[in-house]
Computed example of a mutant assay.
Amino acid sequence: MAVKYKRIVLKLSGEALAGEKGFGINPPVIAAIAEQIKQVHELEVQIAIVCGGGNIWRGETGAEMGMDRAQADYMGMLATVMNGLALQDGLENAGVPTRVQTSIEMRQVAEPYIRRRAIRNLEKNRVVIFSGGTGSPYFSTDTTSVLRAAEIEADVILMAKNGVDGVYSADPQKDPHAKKYQELTQLDVINKKLGVMDSTASSLSMDNNIPLVVFNLNEPGNILRAVQGEAIGTTITGGK
């Protein structure tokens, strides 16, 4: 079965791991995502994953409550580690060898992030989960996705959304006239303020010419379709 991309970064939101609950980790949802990833893994596609942490904690929420922003962001990074470990368990239960690497060292539970080791794991057909964000506050997991994609020379970032099938000109749930885009550039995303990723992530993607595919995770088989190059969502080219 032909694939368009041989090395990918899959960006999963924390909310996607919570499912309909909206909070916490939902084991049946983890198992379903793991099965989708397994389909792609069996085609010998090299898979790296970045998980968000919004199903457990958001740094922005803590800052709005008066918490020190850096402190709140570090808590968010720890939430992404919990999600990474849960996803690792789901993948290994599905028979997919997986390594979790963290930007903040915690050797008892995961490997520290080392670029060359991450690439070697990918070459050995292991899924690598990047947790702990960038390791620094004030950066989102969207920025982490682009940074890691640049570092491991990934072909694409697949942004799997929870119930959203692409990028729209407005919120389709609020505006019935919202237009779905089939293709954009990162400069379009920034200029139109479409909110696909934060501006730091979009700029980094544009500067490093990393393409992005935004699609609906909740449709079974969509990760495989995205890897095969099917037009299932919105493709955002990395260049200007």
Results as ranks from 00 to 15, higher is better:
residue 174 K to R: 05
residue 9 V to T: 11
residue 166 G to P: 08
residue 34 A to T: 02
residue 225 R to W: 00
residue 232 I to L: 11
residue 162 N to G: 01
residue 110 A to K: 09
residue 23 F to P: 02
residue 186 Q to A: 15
residue 220 P to D: 04
residue 137 P to R: 00
residue 190 I to E: 05
residue 213 V to E: 15
residue 195 G to H: 05
residue 193 K to M: 03
residue 219 E to C: 05
residue 16 A to K: 04
residue 234 T to Y: 13
residue 3 V to H: 14
residue 182 Q to F: 12
residue 83 N to T: 10
residue 118 A to D: 09
residue 185 T to Y: 01
residue 141 T to Y: 08
residue 16 A to P: 00
residue 178 A to K: 07
residue 177 H to W: 03
residue 79 A to P: 04
residue 195 G to Q: 07
residue 207 D to R: 14
residue 30 I to M: 01
residue 151 E to H: 06
residue 32 A to S: 11
residue 10 L to W: 07
residue 165 D to R: 13
residue 169 S to V: 02
residue 217 L to C: 09
residue 64 E to D: 01
residue 65 M to L: 15
residue 57 W to C: 10
residue 145 S to Q: 08
residue 22 G to F: 00
residue 116 R to C: 03
residue 62 G to Q: 14
residue 14 G to C: 10
residue 168 Y to I: 02
residue 240 K to S: 12
residue 76 G to D: 04
residue 73 D to T: 01
residue 113 Y to D: 07
residue 62 G to M: 11
residue 134 T to V: 13
residue 13 S to E: 03
residue 240 K to L: 07
residue 86 A to C: 07
residue 211 P to M: 06
residue 79 A to G: 05
residue 211 P to S: 04
residue 216 N to S: 06
residue 154 A to G: 12
residue 85 L to C: 04
residue 124 K to H: 14
residue 189 V to K: 08
residue 111 E to C: 01
residue 98 T to I: 12
residue 63 A to D: 10
residue 44 E to N: 11
residue 151 E to M: 01
residue 88 Q to P: 08
residue 101 Q to T: 03
residue 174 K to G: 14
residue 204 L to A: 09
residue 110 A to T: 12
residue 16 A to R: 02
residue 221 G to A: 04
residue 163 G to P: 07
residue 238 G to H: 01
residue 163 G to D: 04
residue 25 I to K: 01
residue 68 D to L: 02
residue 143 T to W: 06
residue 116 R to M: 11
residue 14 G to P: 03
residue 202 S to N: 12
residue 18 A to H: 12
residue 203 S to G: 09
residue 152 I to K: 06
residue 39 Q to K: 12
residue 134 T to D: 10
residue 195 G to C: 03
residue 147 L to Q: 08
residue 166 G to S: 14
residue 36 Q to K: 00
residue 45 V to T: 04
residue 185 T to E: 00
residue 76 G to A: 09
residue 184 L to T: 02
